[in-house]
Design a protein around this nucleic acid. Structure first.
Length: 423
RNA sequence: GGAGGGGUGGCAGAGAGGUCUAAUGCACCGCACUUGAAAUGCGGCGUGGGGCAACCCACCGUGAGUUCGAAUCUCACCCCCUCCGCCA
């Protein structure tokens, strides 16, 4: 959510931002409605003032005739107030629905573009591996070594269901232990296990609702299953006032994640790249409300994720997402994508974005800065998501005989150097 | 799932249809007294919106309703506590 004052005063900037994101929103209508809203509010306030005055007057009034007179006048006033308040309700309905559609303004460095195909590579790390044999997909490799079972996965859990077993489970757990250890030794991050089953408000606050209703699982109690720990972690300080000295707040948040993948039925149907249920460690930051701070922590969160990929020795690149590939609230986003040999392209493992005060305005998270209250800035990036990253590991580390070399940093956790070698 | 109790400013806590512009205490800030501190005294001390300003409006868990008038009465919902049942 943007400040209505900001929208009014910077309509051109907001409009240009929406255009860059390829999001349609009728700002003229919004401003027109807001004019009416202000006018109506002034009128209502005036009538309420009269009502309040009469209420005091009637208390001290002993003369029954005069008392009756005041009551008659008040009844009349009450009726016009009721009508005005009704039209206010009506007006606010449209006003609010427009307000939540107004996207945050993307950063100047965000490239123009129509889709993720227009994202721009900003850097590359590691050498793309050359194989002198036909590469197998992660899906094949996992089956081959009995690391996963998709058939029974579908039988038990339906489309995109999966079981991880044997070294598949070991590898997944190894990755979790690896990332936990890295973040336990990193200053400033509060480790957190957060809810996945979350009420509607934090979803609206983080910007996932009302836009993405069909991407979320909903319970019969009206709660939703979160697709990321970001939702609950951001909800943690909802409706609170923080102290400047306590900023930044950094969370290393873990939760199971659930995604309906409603818009991508035909995509990535083999293996465990795109699944309905997975585990994710998320980095979430609340910092002071200035652009430089946001940028600083954005780069830091991105670097944290890159460091993990470098330790795993997975070749990756970082792209800056183009306007159309940005979410409603995002100012700027980097996707980190690791090399997927079977597809001969990079596939996303991490997504790092900042929002300025877009989320915190909706969530009502402020901090005291001297005399004034400000909305904090918020950011997030994946730390590590399992089992997705298993796909790139097994593919990049596959050998001619079909065995999989275990990345050095994971060997202690997996308990072996190679998967699928009868040694 | 059943029964009961309760949500009021940063905290504690009164208020039970009309001077609520929410008592009082604690905490906090300023001033006075003091060598300094404590104690004491005086003053200040919420958020959002509107207005050049004086000032006005809204907010007592949330939303509806009753009333000339609601923190206060009615209804629904949310959350917290206590007990019983079930349970990892």
């Amino acid at each position: 959510m943007l400040d209505i004052k900001f929208i009014r005063e910077n309509k051109d900037i907001v409009a240009a931002g929406a255009k860059k994101k390829r999001i349609e929103v009728d700002l003229d209508r919004l401003v027109e409605l807001d004019d009416k809203r202000r006018e109506l509010q002034a009128s209502i306030d005036g009538k309420r003032a009269e009502q309040n005055n009469a209420s005091i007057a009637i208390t001290g009034e002993k003369d029954p005739a005069k008392k009756k007179e005041i009551i008659a006048r008040m009844q009349e006033l009450k009726e016009t107030l009721r009508l005005e308040e009704e039209s206010m309700q009506e007006l606010l309905k449209e006003w609010r629905s427009l307000m939540v559609q107004v996207p945050n303004v993307p950063d100047i460095s965000v490239p123009e573009g129509e889709s993720d195909a227009d994202n721009k590579e900003v850097r590359q790390w590691g050498d793309i591996p050359k194989f002198d044999f036909p590469v197998k997909s992660h899906s094949e490799l996992l089956l081959m070594h009995d690391m996963a079972d998709y058939e029974r996965g579908a039988k038990v859990a339906g489309f995109r269901g999966y079981f991880l077993k044997n070294d598949g489970a070991r590898l997944s757990w190894a990755l979790e232990r690896f990332v936990i250890e890295r973040f336990m030794n990193r200053d400033g991050f509060t480790p957190m296990i957060v809810p996945s089953l979350v009420r509607r408000e934090p979803f609206v606050g983080t910007g996932y609702l009302p836009q993405s209703e069909e991407d979320l699982y909903k319970t019969q109690d009206g709660d939703y299953l979160a697709g990321t720990a970001e939702v609950a972690a951001m909800g943690y300080h909802m409706d609170e006032t923080l102290e400047k000295k306590d900023l930044p707040l950094k969370f290393f948040a873990f939760s199971p994640c659930f995604r309906r993948e409603a818009g991508s039925h035909g995509k990535d149907t083999k293996g465990i790249f795109r699944i309905h249920e997975f585990l994710k460690f998320e980095q979430v930051v609340l910092c002071e409300a200035n652009h430089e701070e946001s940028v600083k922590y954005h780069e830091e969160l991105t670097a944290n994720a890159e460091a993990l990929l470098q330790e795993l020795k997975l070749p990756y690149h970082v792209v800056i997402n183009c306007g159309a590939d940005l979410g409603l609230g995002q100012v700027k986003k980097y996707d980190i994508e690791a090399w997927m040999p079977s597809e001969e392209k990079y596939r996303e493992t991490h997504s790092s974005s900042y929002f300025h005060d877009f989320q915190t305005r909706r969530l009502n998270i402020r901090y005291r800065d001297g005399e004034t209250l400000r909305y904090v800035h918020s950011l997030n990036n994946t730390a590590l998501a399992t089992p997705r990253i298993v796909t790139q590991i097994v593919e990049n580390y596959q050998n001619k005989d079909g065995s999989i070399t275990v990345p050095e940093v994971l060997r202690g956790y997996v308990g072996k150097d190679t998967i699928g070698k009868s040694n």
